[in-house]
Design a protein around this nucleic acid. Structure first.
Lengths: 337, 337
DNA sequence: CATACTTGTGGAATCGGTTCCATGGAATCG
DNA sequence: CGATTCCATGGAACCGATTCCACAAGTATG
């Protein structure tokens, strides 16, 4: 069962390969008769062009690579979905690479994508420039998403890591909280660093307790969120409010609070990161720092197509905002401040 | 900045293209000198073989397609991750196709995958055989995962849709529940049909109330779970326990219960489907029907490699089991039966 | 009416690898 | 020692599309 080729189509239509190809690619210099004959042959034979052969000849593959740390993280799943949908609009196929939170696997995927000759890459980078040297040195158009690397001039779309945290800290302080625990992300990522700085500045601005013991350093994974909650709850003078720097660490921390019978909303106030669907299930629902993941994915694709076309779009920072729900109630309503 | 080709490598190493190719593909008939020279040239020039050209000549692309309804569903995200990891072990790249719960997009992705000449496809099919005619008629090896299509002899890995539901219904009945509401999946999918049949048989077996009004037909999406919970809670004689046939409908239903102040665990008992991480956050934690998603993904890949190798592996059904947690408490402990 | 410009077409080259086949030299055998 | 086998190698064909180029026929222009 050999696949049908354009040669078979040409033969069946009584024209040359060249003419068949022109008809199929919508070239204007084709006669109505040729169009009709080729169309009929394609239909009859069930011809499906070989994408490999096409992209070998053209230099474009109409494929972009999307390099993510982990699809199982709801934030990245949403991002993947948004990127894929928008890429489709531009006629691009998206090749997902799941680095599985490892720089080695990230490197392997970079190699694969370059071998596949993707037309461009959208990456949420892990590690530093060195880990991405292959990609950055390849000349392939790249756009960073969610995270940024210093010392590079790669265009990026990232969330505003300052405003959301600021609003959250002020919100908690205005409710009388003085000890606000913070489960930080890894300082190797721009996101982790910027959010921590924002937390420190906001704490200083409100005059709340700035003890270093209130900060736990996690790694954006659920387990580290759990570890953070344990550590902070066991302090001699434990925090009355918790703030976590990403969705998975929020999940881990909430699980620990539940296990220990520390009731969220009454026993402790909690602000999570990313407005994922599951957070609305909690009772009370979670106050979160939200940003528009769909927009982030869409814009990343648009920026990449611009880079592919030879442009050099400016990096963008998308707004974050605090969505107040039941997990950070007014002190008068049962919260011990 | 033209890409480095094997011709450049051959030239730099002072050998022919043929020899360079043999060295690169590990052909035994190569001299140590040739290996050394080619190796050095590859290193020096930064050669990266063009996957397009290679798969054009060989008939294999070392790529498999994974066709899923929606990555944003945590169950499918986990499945995607498992498939990708296992495929990697076999030297395959995974091309994700997100059908976005639409048969049109599914069809589009089938076309893309066939054009890309994937070596095989793992699919959680939507619709019926007709919607997959292109794929099934193409001669490309296919394995179904999670869902099954009748009237086809495609090998599949699916969860045991009977045992888990049975255990859940018996568990609830043994706690004294007589009216057990069921939020069913779409009857167009094998999973939806089998789970409903299991529910009906289990209800009959325990002698609980088998009123048709206790069954709501959803579509495996969160919104339909919410609609189901609303409808069932508004019955003149509402159920004292709810059971939902997938994770997203569970999420929707739980959200509605929370909104209405119907406390899960005390106001109503609830059994969810799929043991996703977020469910453990709930307080009380959710009793669920769980199955081993990782195993499902791994086995699907193994079966597909077997089909690619010319075998015809037997379909497999993986066990489900009930994990009892706080959302279905003993009646004596605060549950009104 | 001769020249120039379109228009549709087919032959052939091309993209970057892999692989068949022929060749020459070294090793092995009777 | 001659015949056979083995090994490493290079030339050339090939995979399936696209595209350059030349050409023939038809149309517009001076």
């Amino acid at each position: 069962m050999r696949a049908v080729t354009i040669k078979d189509v040409a033969q069946a239509a009584g024209v040359s390969k060249a003419t068949a190809s022109r008809v199929l690619s919508g070239h204007p210099a084709t006669s109505p008769e040729a169009r009709k004959a080729v169309g009929a042959a394609v239909e009859h034979l069930g011809f499906r062009p070989n994408a490999q052969a096409r992209s070998l000849r053209k230099t474009r593959t109409q494929t972009i690579g999307l390099l993510l740390p982990d699809v199982r993280n709801p934030f990245f799943a949403d991002l993947a979905h948004a990127v894929e949908q928008r890429a489709r609009d531009f006629g691009y196929l998206t090749l997902f690479g799941n680095a599985n939170e490892s720089v080695e696997q990230q490197d392997r995927y970079i190699e694969v994508m370059l071998s596949q000759r993707v037309d461009g890459v959208i990456a949420a980078p892990q590690g530093d420039e060195e880990n991405l040297a292959n990609l950055l040195g390849s000349g392939v158009p790249v756009v960073f998403v969610d995270r940024v690397l210093d010392n590079t001039d790669v265009p990026s779309v990232s969330p505003d890591n300052v405003t959301g945290i600021q609003e959250a800290v002020r919100h908690l302080a205005s409710q009388g909280h003085r000890r606000i625990g913070y489960i930080a992300g890894p300082q190797s990522s721009s996101t982790g660093r910027e959010r921590l700085t924002a937390y420190r500045e906001a704490i200083a601005g409100t005059g709340a307790d700035d003890a270093e013991e209130l900060i736990f350093f996690g790694d954006f994974q659920a387990a580290s969120g759990a570890a953070g909650a344990r550590t902070l709850l066991e302090l001699a003078d434990p925090p009355t409010a918790l703030l976590a720097a990403d969705s998975l660490m929020s999940i881990g921390a909430i699980a620990v609070c539940n296990q220990r019978g520390v009731a969220i909303g009454s026993g402790i106030s909690f602000v999570g990161y990313d407005d994922i669907e599951a957070f609305t299930l909690l009772n009370p629902a979670l106050t979160v720092i939200a940003h528009d993941v769909d927009a982030m994915g869409r814009i990343a694709v648009e920026m990449l197509t611009s880079v592919i076309a030879g442009g050099s779009p400016a990096s963008r920072v998308l707004p974050s905002r605090l969505i107040v729900r039941g997990s950070t109630p007014e002190p008068s309503r049962g919260q011990h401040p």
